[in-house]
Simulated assay, not measured.
Amino acid sequence: MSTTTIRLTDELKARISHAAERAGTTSHSFILGAIEEKVGEAERQREFLDEAERRWQAFVSDGQVFAWEDMRDYLERRARGENPDLPVKKTYGRRP
């Protein structure tokens, strides 16, 4: 385990101490938890953006999409507990 030094203003240190006390933990544990939470948030955000980029690239490469009407019907049926097949993809911009 490594050690990192951070500089806190007196005001922030007091706020952390108060929040930790109210949470029933130590300032050290409170700070570690806050850091873990923030790192997890950043990782999830990056994963979300990476997935969005993968999906965009897939769309750009083949132009295939699900029509909203078909997808909406699919999702409504799933919400009712049914197990419908995925709708058929269509080429973007063209009507059947």
Rank of each mutant, 00 (worst) to 15 (best):
Met1Cys: 06
Met1Ser: 15
Thr3Leu: 14
Thr3Met: 11
Thr3Ser: 15
Thr5Cys: 12
Thr5His: 15
Ile6Val: 15
Leu8Gln: 03
Leu8His: 04
Leu8Arg: 10
Asp10Met: 08
Asp10Val: 01
Lys13Tyr: 11
Ala14Asp: 07
Ala14Lys: 03
Arg15Met: 00
Ile16Asp: 01
Ala19Asn: 02
Ala19Asp: 01
Ala20Glu: 00
Glu21Ile: 09
Glu21Gly: 12
Arg22Phe: 01
Thr25His: 02
Thr25Gly: 04
Thr25Trp: 00
Thr25Asn: 02
Thr25Leu: 01
Thr25Met: 07
Thr26Cys: 02
Ser27Thr: 13
Ser27Tyr: 03
His28Arg: 11
Phe30Pro: 00
Phe30Thr: 02
Phe30Gln: 01
Phe30Val: 00
Ile31Glu: 00
Leu32Pro: 09
Gly33Ser: 01
Gly33Glu: 00
Gly33Lys: 00
Ala34Met: 08
Ile35Tyr: 05
Ile35Phe: 13
Glu37Ser: 14
Glu37Tyr: 08
Lys38Cys: 04
Ala42Cys: 13
Arg44Lys: 15
Arg44Leu: 10
Arg44Pro: 03
Gln45Trp: 13
Gln45Pro: 03
Glu47Trp: 09
Leu49Val: 08
Leu49Ala: 07
Asp50Ser: 06
Asp50Val: 15
Asp50Ala: 14
Glu51Cys: 03
Ala52Asn: 05
Ala52Pro: 04
Glu53Ala: 04
Arg54Cys: 12
Arg55Gly: 08
Arg55Glu: 14
Gln57His: 04
Ala58Phe: 07
Ala58Gln: 04
Val60Gln: 13
Asp62Ile: 07
Asp62Ser: 06
Asp62Arg: 07
Gly63Met: 05
Gly63Cys: 08
Gln64Trp: 05
Ala67Tyr: 01
Asp70Arg: 04
Asp70Ser: 12
Met71Asn: 06
Arg72Phe: 11
Tyr74Asn: 01
Leu75Ser: 03
Glu76Gln: 11
Glu76Cys: 12
Glu76Phe: 05
Arg78Thr: 10
Ala79His: 13
Gly81Gln: 09
Glu82Ala: 11
Glu82Pro: 04
Glu82Phe: 10
Glu82Thr: 09
Pro84Leu: 15
Pro84Met: 10
Asp85Cys: 03
Asp85Trp: 05
Leu86Pro: 04
Pro87Leu: 00
Val88Glu: 06
Val88Arg: 06
Val88Gly: 02
Lys89Trp: 00
Lys90His: 06
Lys90Ser: 05
Thr91Cys: 12
Thr91Pro: 08
Tyr92Asn: 10
Gly93Arg: 05
Gly93Asn: 08
Arg94Met: 13
Arg95Trp: 01
Arg95Lys: 09
